[in-house]
């Protein structure tokens, strides 16, 4: 489940040195920009670098979670990737095609066939019922009435809004509206799925359900997704990789374990400080070469779930087995206990 993307395959989304500047004359300002101009200096000049020199590759089926404080540029980055806004500089390739070079028709085609997006602020059409909102992308594609109704009902059921097809957005709660947005983005079965804080308006129970549903979908459908959230637990549950943004730049983009174990910058360290490491780190991450006898721990389980087992085990080195059941190394029990209960003083 936490397997990394297959290397060497062509990434679905690939961006190189993407910038997005807000200000009076972003292009001219960017052309005159010298390397190393800081965020504050730019702000002094009247420009906000909402996205700053971002380079990323996202492989097929991968789930990238983007995190960062409010205003760090998460939504702007996703808008650049979907070309809802034009980036100031850099190239963005989707399946190898440069989206900045696409004409209106190609872009519309791309969105009709491949992309889905859930918006932070829902963006539902107020004059359409739930059903018609969800069917809207299909309608744009010119699908016939009957088919789009059937498909829309399917996804409405999927997000748990069955029975409310005829409601209008203003008759729904925030969480329900959010789910309509999710259903709409799923209607066309997109290959690439952008989700801007899709679960932020949901209550914890439904949120969890949606996350499970989401993981299930991801496994069956193999969608490539970019997911924005403020919630670290959510990120840990869902992410293949996590990108942490600050002032428009990506501070670190890595697997959850690496982000927690080896923060690249002091900012990331501070960002992850509050997190209980045992919930993130898996036995496999800590495993070192070697062998030991007896019952093995599962490499993909977090230390947190293994806590009782580790605490009750008397061996210094506990074997760790990979998904195929073969022992892949040993876990140093003392080190694991240190992570679980804090280092001995």
């Amino acid at each position: 489940m936490w397997s990394l993307a297959v290397p060497n395959a062509q990434p679905v989304i690939s961006c190189r040195n993407v910038w997005k500047l807000y200000g009076p004359k972003p292009q001219a300002y960017f052309a005159a920009l010298t390397a190393g101009t800081s965020f504050e200096q730019m702000r002094g000049d009247g420009y906000i670098s909402a996205v700053r020199d971002v380079s990323l590759d996202i492989a097929k089926g991968e789930m990238l979670v983007v995190m960062g404080l409010s205003g760090s540029g998460k939504s702007t980055l996703v808008r650049c990737l979907s070309r809802l806004i034009d980036s100031t500089a850099g190239t963005i390739l989707i399946d190898g095609d440069d989206i900045a070079k696409m004409d209106a028709r190609a872009l519309i085609d791309l969105r009709r066939r491949k992309m889905g997006m859930v918006f932070q602020s829902f963006g539902l059409l107020p004059h359409r019922s739930v059903l018609d909102n969800v069917a809207f992308p299909l309608e744009m594609r010119g699908q016939d009435r009957h088919d789009r109704r059937a498909r829309a009902l399917e996804v409405i059921e999927l997000v748990g809004l069955k029975g409310r097809e005829d409601y209008f957005p203003r008759e729904l709660s925030g969480g329900q509206q959010q789910r309509v947005g999710i259903a709409r983005s799923l209607a066309i079965e997109p290959d690439i799925w952008f989700l801007d804080e899709p679960f932020s308006a949901l209550d914890p129970l439904i949120r969890r359900e949606m996350q499970d549903e989401f993981l299930r979908l991801k496994q069956i459908l193999g969608k490539t997704s970019v997911f924005i959230t403020h919630d670290f637990d959510e990120a840990l549950r869902l992410a293949d990789r996590i990108a942490i943004m600050k002032d428009g730049a990506i501070e670190q983009c890595d697997t959850p374990d690496q982000i927690v174990l080896n923060p690249a910058t002091p900012y990331v360290a501070k960002f992850t400080e509050e997190i209980e490491k045992s919930r993130v780190i898996r036995a496999g991450t800590l495993a070192q070469a070697g062998t030991a006898e007896g019952q093995a721990l599962s490499a993909s389980a977090t230390l947190h779930t293994l806590a009782r087992q580790i605490a009750q085990d008397s061996r210094d080195l506990i074997p760790v087995a990979g998904p195929d059941g073969r022992v892949m190394g040993t876990l140093n029990r003392a080190a694991a206990l240190d992570i679980l209960f804090g280092a001995a003083q």
Binding site: L84, R141, R184
Partner: peptide, 10 residues
């Protein structure tokens, strides 16, 4: 946001 969702719907 309504405009953007319209655009993303193609």
């Amino acid at each position: 946001n309504v405009v953007e969702s319209g655009l993303m719907s193609g």
